[in-house]
């Protein structure tokens, strides 16, 4: 990858852009299934803009990141390393994992927290081909009656919810769009 590509594509105004990006991520996590636009990052072409912005907003030298499948390439590694300083690691030790739904399987490889510290669990950034408010039905905290989200499947999320308060939390990205699905959400 040309060096210029590694060095570019970060936030030009990190304090303000990450503040906006975080609000999108927070709204998404607080209102499972809701869709949000998130911009400001220009990661390498294999990553979506939304994924880039999420990484810039949440990752740094304190957050081990696991790259799954095609995401684990020099281009992506160099970009993440330069812009966030995040160390790379295997699935069992990660705070964030990044990849397509297929590449991230099996989910059992990722930390779901401990009984006393359920927060010590991975946040999964899942690149999906498209994201829309249709498909699986979601209920739970953050959702007034119910919501719909185009999930890659339902079974895995039901199993994850059954672990509550342990479990994984998901951020789905597609283009400049994102949605989230925390462990607290019931999926039908």
């Amino acid at each position: 990858m040309p060096q210029s590509q590694t060095l570019s594509g970060g936030f030009a105004d990190p304090a303000r852009q990450s503040a906006h990006a975080f609000r999108s991520v927070m709204e998404a996590m607080a209102r499972p299934g809701s869709l949000h636009d998130i911009t400001g990052a220009e990661p390498p072409a294999s990553l979506s803009v939304a994924t880039g912005a999420v990484l810039l907003t949440l990752c740094d030298t304190d957050t081990p990141v696991h790259l799954a499948g095609d995401a684990d390439c020099a281009t992506v590694r160099d970009w993440i390393a330069f812009h966030t300083g995040a160390p790379f690691c295997g699935p069992a030790d990660c705070m964030f994992a990044l990849g397509t739904w297929q590449a991230l399987a099996p989910l059992s490889a990722f930390p779901t927290g401990t009984a006393q510290y359920p927060d010590r669990s991975a946040t999964m950034i899942v690149e999906v081909p498209q994201l829309s408010a249709s498909g699986a039905t979601l209920t739970g905290p953050g959702i007034k009656d119910n919501a719909s989200l185009s999930l890659p499947e339902t079974r895995a999320f039901r199993d994850n919810h059954a672990l509550f308060p342990l479990g994984l939390d998901f951020i789905f990205t597609s283009g400049s769009r994102l949605a989230a699905l925390p462990r607290s959400t019931e999926v039908r």
Partner: peptide, 10 residues
């Protein structure tokens, strides 16, 4: 921010 997100998830 990471703590807030985990707080919202649990």
């Amino acid at each position: 921010r990471r703590a807030i997100l985990k707080g919202l998830a649990i």
